[in-house]
């Protein structure tokens, strides 16, 4: 008979990795957030000093506000768009596979620096976007000179990558039992009513999943602002991950950077917990068969 610990042997790589690359760093950064550490001298305990400094740090305040604005702008727009396109694709259309592939391409490429480079070009003053705007009689927009517009270019970049969220929505939509719609139609429900009362409740688990994943990701946005706007203008795209990067790897304030990282982590965690808690009220698990 095999040892009941045999399974643990297969898990050994994971357990080692979990300890060395996740748990210890996780606790390490908590410890560092209460210290001053510049990589040269040993960390010096400084109590809550980093956190009290944050309360008066205007860059931090600005960065935090911009980050929240970015997340609350990007996540709903991206998810709404992904859902809208998934719903349209879910009608019995031909070429569904073609469209699904076409819409998914940006998700494959979007994380690349090359796409961030492209964004710099098409949103430049004489770039593609402004040329299109002027050709249809609109005023060109100063994308990178204006704080709100600059942030919005990054929102657009991430919305452009709606494909992966859309594919997940589409799979959920296709799993909805078609007989429910027929029953609703017999009861006299219109399309809008059956979408609102049948489709939407049935796909709430997937909406919830996408919401959490996109939110966690949006809070950690780095490549877009780093390459496209460099955090400007007037720090309007200086998201917290950029600030953490600068503090840690340019100024070597490892303690202070860890404190910012922990504030960011706690914000993400609180919002995740709120989402989980509220999910009991709006996420619908019908005859849950999942193991």
């Amino acid at each position: 008979m095999e040892s009941r610990y045999l399974g643990l042997a297969y898990l050994a790589p994971y357990i080692i990795g979990l300890l060395v690359f996740t748990m210890i760093p996780f606790l390490g950064s908590l410890y560092l957030s209460f210290t001053d550490y510049n990589l040269i001298n040993a960390p010096v305990w400084s109590g809550l000093a980093n956190f009290t400094d944050l309360t008066t740090d205007r860059t931090f305040k600005r960065s935090l506000n911009v980050t929240l604005l970015y997340v609350f702008l990007t996540v709903p727009i991206k998810l709404a768009f992904a859902l809208l396109i998934a719903v349209i694709l879910n009608y019995r259309l031909r070429a569904i596979g073609f469209f699904r592939t076409a819409y998914y391409v940006p998700s494959i490429l979007g994380g690349s620096i090359a796409v961030a480079v492209l964004w710099r070009y098409i949103f430049a003053d004489a770039g593609l976007v402004n040329l299109v705007l002027t050709s249809i009689g609109l005023e060109p927009v100063n994308w990178f000179g204006d704080p709100v517009n600059a942030l919005f270019t990054i929102t657009l970049l991430r919305t452009w990558q709606f494909g992966s969220a859309m594919v997940i929505f589409l799979a959920a939509l296709q799993a909805v039992d078609k007989s429910l719609y027929e029953a609703a139609a017999i009861e006299g429900a219109g399309k809008w009513a059956s979408f609102w009362h049948i489709t939407l409740p049935l796909i709430t688990p997937v909406i919830f999943f996408n919401l959490i994943m996109q939110m966690v990701q949006a809070f950690q946005e780095f490549n877009g602002p780093y390459v496209i706007t460099g955090g400007g203008p007037l720090k309007s795209t200086y998201l917290l991950p950029l600030y953490i990067y600068d503090e840690a790897f340019k100024n070597f304030n490892m303690g202070y950077a860890s404190a910012i990282a922990w504030v960011l982590f706690i914000i993400i965690m609180v919002l995740t917990v709120v989402a989980f808690w509220s999910s009991k009220k709006w996420v619908y698990y019908a005859g849950d068969k999942r193991s």
């Binding site: 690359f21 760093p25 996780f26 390490g28 950077a257 990282a261 960011l264 993400i268």
Partner: peptide, 21 residues
């Protein structure tokens, strides 16, 4: 459960100690 927690754990919080390591 730790696997699921790791899925949701933002990398930003472990990056600095990993670098030091």
């Amino acid at each position: 459960a730790s696997l699921i927690a790791t899925l949701l754990l933002p990398n930003v919080v472990t990056r600095i100690p990993q670098y030091i390591l």
